[in-house]
Write a protein that binds this DNA or RNA. Sequence first.
DNA 1: GACTGGAGCACC
DNA 2: AAACGGTGCTCCAGTC
Length: 888
Amino acid sequence: MTIRKFFDYEEETKLKVKRTVSKMSSSSTPTVRRAKVVKETLPPCEECGLYKTCRSPKMGVTGEGRTGILFLAEAAGSTEDKLGYQLCGQAGQLFRDEIITPLGYDLDADFYKCNVVRCRPISETGSNRTPTDREIALCHGETWQLIKDRRPKAIILTGRVPLQSYLLDIEIGGEQPAISRWADWCIPDRDLKCWVIPQYHPSFFQYGSNKKLLKIYRQKMEVAIGNSLKPFPELTREEDKIRCIFSPEEAIQVLETILRDKPPLLTLDWETTGLKPYKTGHKIVAVGLSWNPEQGVSFPMFPEIVPLLRMILKNLDIKKTAHNFKFEELWARQILETSIKGWKWCSQLATHVLDDRHGIKSLAFQTFVRYGIAGFKDETSPFMKSETSNDLNNIEACPIDKLLLRNGLDAMFAHRLALDQMEELKQIKGLTGAYNLFHEGSLAFLDSEITGIRTSMAYFTEVQKGMEDECKVAKENIMNSHYAKLWEKETGVKLNPTSPDQLKKLLFNTLGVKPLKYTAKKNPSLDKADIDELAKTVSQKSLRTFLKNITILRTSTKTESTYVRGLMKEIYDDTIHPFFHLDSVRSYRSSSQNPNFQNIPVRNERMMLLVRNGIFPHPGQQLLEVDFGMHEVRVAACFTQDPELIHYCEDPTSDMHRDQTERIFLLQKDRINKPIRNLVKGGFVFAQFYGSWYAPCAENLWKWSDDLTLEDGMPIHTHLKSKGISTLDDFSLHVRAEEDHFWKKFSVYTQWKEKWVNKYYETGKVLLKHGFRRQGFLDRNQILNTAIQGTAFHLLLWSFIELMKIARKEDWKSRIIAQIHDCILFSVAPSELQHVSKLTHYITTAAIKKPHPWLNVPLDVEYELSGIDQPWAAKEKISLDKILLENY
DNA sequence: GACTGGAGCACC
DNA sequence: AAACGGTGCTCCAGTC
């Protein structure tokens, strides 16, 4: 089998890879992905030894294959091994009964079937098991030869294991065989000359609530079979379609033609010296253009071409597209000093709007799953890496011919992708509106990114010194303890107190402490909550001190590494320029990166002061933060139309958290204070809305209320005792009853939840108000949360876009500098404070109603303001009325 | 030396 | 039946 890399820069000598497959450990994925090499060095398939222990060794392809479609499954289980054909065990039978038969097919008559590992893998206890990486590799050559001999029209890969086997032949660097991101794509395989369609394995749907997903699986499989029967396209060599230009005269000719002919859609792709253009010395090295899905051109950024290129970029009649258009726009503005007019499409953004999954948005991935081309960026990508997001990369060391070829291909594939997506998007009701919101939103976010956020390198340099000292002292306290010495005696090496692994070994093995909970991967957990709890319960005072010091160390190192050092890394000219993305989050919220500006400390007073004292408005201005109050609750009220919830949104004197606190802690209103209300807000109300249940709620409320006292000084646990609740068990029973009461009170919400979940199980989609749809296999909480979380953000985004439009039109001195899901951050000129505040109130609470007729509860915004040139830490709550006082 | 998965933790 | 939704960054430890 040849490598499906459609051009190969590497010399033959490099192909002689020294490692052999037989040396691979069973737990690692082979890095040798070249079938040529594998064939030469591969030991006989018998090397795995599985043939010795099974009844049907080396099971071949079975089935009559009337459709020409081949199902490639994992490996034989005990039933398959006994009967001698595939997909007849428990999962296989489910597949037949629930998927294939209802679709009107007969698995054995209509399809071919084969396993990736053709002998039965058997565990030590005699049960079925997943084949190892080594077994998959050993079986690979012969299995795929058998498959090719049948010349299937399509191969449907059922599960991760067949996918992994398929990817062994494909030069697509760093791609993980996670089935979630590969499922459903219909890959035109250029070597096999047939479609390859990954799907989940039927065993995924065997147990628990996953059984409810069978209907969606059936729909997906129906589509997969339909796609399999499509005629296979004629595929031609792609590198021949790229014209790499090496002279300015020729480049000018091309640009003149574009300016004269005005193609309906022009794809732009820059190759640049880095990720961000702000630091001096950055430039655009090469330009790739495409106006035809079968053609691309590229040339270096000759100085002579810049005027013509600017004219094209500014020409509104030439509509533009790019794969991540924010990037092309950013570099055009900063380096070419031109804003690009006529943006029509961003293929990266459209990829996300069409499909919410992670790991699919890169052009390399899209090019492979849609056009069967792998690895065309691998050779040039190493030159594009830089230390930090502001630094220069090594692109100028990249051979220019390789760079231009990549550049032209990028442009051509992005163009092809854009045209295909425009067709797809049109077919789906409501999705165009969703795309447009994100298209405008991305451009508005870019304005904030370029404006940037003012910081102070001098401040953080000073703070860093203090933090480093603090970390050192915290470390010393730990290292001087009896426990650090005990560790050293036991293991012979010094304890690393920032290593969770070592601390777990010390506590849970050496000292015999019992873990309180386990992580998602079923390992013992030792996070802050565990340490806090252990510090309360262990009997030795010295161990309590030790644990408390660990917590101190963790908080200091987090502050120093993530927030002080991490921010400093991103500062250039006392400004940070975080990215705000709309093409990443599965619930269609935003994300922020380099640095993440959405997780700057605020709750821990000390961390907040240390970090936020270094974040400033622009000179002479003030920071104004506008928060959408109770935002997700209001959106939930709109979705569910629950009258109780609507009441809480409409009546400003009502307070659901206070009401709930009365019940949970059996308190009269006047005995409730802020910490107790906050505890119930986070530990019960929001937890319940997000899908938690009474047991963990009760446990957390009990734990966290341990050191809380009422207004009059009475410890809350003493108070509860007076009400007959003296243990966690008592309290759990009480919270259980309250949970029941809570969802009875919001009975319309409860009904909505059932309806909403069932709708997903019917259609496989969660539909949001603005037209977005989340797909894939979701669990109950994801189904319920996505709609509310995403939609809440979209209301903010709409407001953000409107405000940015007005800011531009009115030529504000004030700037909109950031957004954090349900709040907008301004650097506001004092002379414009009243105007900006009033206008924001109008946009976010009144104007927003018109394009959102379903919004039938009032929205509310709250203001926080810091003084002129004062840092973010200095912000204080302020009412709109006060801001609007004449002499304020 | 470079890469990766896992854990932990900051935010909404 | 299952059981808190969604991110990004840093460090550790294992691997090649």
